[in-house]
């Protein structure tokens, strides 16, 4: 085995040992804190029956994750549907940029959770509220990156469009989008990452279903090992989401299709 491969396995394993040691020490110092072994055993139990459904508030871990993912993808899809056209408009029109910019700058730094009570009041529905919060989370990076992509279209390409007398529609699809798509996907990848962060907090507040709710529920049940399991699973799912998005992004990036 090459030296590099040995390192790639040995170093994380070593660090894993250290983490387990720290964790065990914490578990000894704080009464009731689950030990690594207890947590492992609980994990096996949780994963052994991930799809059970005893009605509202008592469902298997896979169902909880699925309902969180559904909300994330719902809000994310809405954000793409609105954000990409708005980003294209802002990128192509100076007037649109001037009109939108102050609002984007002011709304972007607002925590999406601040919208949650308002959404709850308007929709009176937990699912809709969570989807709306994810929508508000996801839309800013998508708008900003799409507009950035449009503005990075070089003057030369636009001159080609002018000489060929492309219609605005043809210009968008044949010149602007091919350049902007990699930027749009960068925005989408950022958005999805933040959306996955935000959904956990949102579900702790809305309750009912979802991985965020599950963690909070297990806190109320004094079932602390499940909180740790929740953290690990959220991390794993987030990592998988990011990898898939990166994969899709590369696929649509003309610069990465086997050429420089």
């Amino acid at each position: 085995m090459p030296y590099k491969t040995i390192n790639a396995i040995a170093l994380p394993t070593l660090l894993f040992g250290v983490l387990i040691a720290v964790w065990s020490t914490v578990a000894i110092k704080i009464p009731g804190f689950p030990t690594p072994m207890e947590t492992w055993n609980e994990l096996l139990i949780v994963l052994s029956n991930p799809l059970y459904d005893n009605g509202a508030g008592d469902q298997g871990i896979a169902l909880q994750l699925m309902s969180s993912l559904k909300r994330v993808f719902g809000g994310f899809a809405l954000a793409i549907a609105v954000g990409v056209p708005v980003g294209l408009l802002i990128g192509m029109s100076k007037a649109a940029q001037t009109a939108f910019n102050p609002y984007i700058q002011i709304l972007k730094p607002v925590s999406p959770l601040a919208w949650l009570p308002l959404a709850l009041f308007v929709f009176k529905d937990v699912d809709m509220t969570a989807i709306f919060v994810i929508f508000i989370t996801s839309i800013w990076p998508i708008i900003i990156n799409t507009a950035l992509g449009v503005r990075s279209v070089s003057e030369d390409y636009l001159n080609v469009a002018k000489v060929l007398q492309l219609t605005p529609f043809e210009k968008v699809f044949q010149i602007i989008l091919p350049v902007a798509v990699p930027f749009i996907f960068t925005g989408m990848r950022l958005s999805l990452g933040i959306a996955w962060l935000v959904i956990v907090a949102a579900e702790m507040l809305t309750g009912g279903l979802g991985i965020g709710f599950w963690i909070w529920d297990e806190y109320n049940n004094l079932n602390y090992s499940h909180i740790i399991i929740g953290i690990i699973l959220i991390g794993v799912v987030g990592y998988i989401l990011d990898t898939i998005m990166g994969f899709i992004a590369d696929h649509f990036d003309y610069r990465k299709r086997g050429r420089v």
């Binding site: 001159n159 080609v160 000489v163 091919p178 610069r255």
Partner: peptide, 18 residues
């Protein structure tokens, strides 16, 4: 206005890389 009866070859070729 620009038009295809006056084609331009630009210094930096301006081919669409995709």
């Amino acid at each position: 206005a620009p038009g295809p009866e006056r084609a331009v070859v630009f210094q930096n070729h301006s081919l669409l890389p995709w």
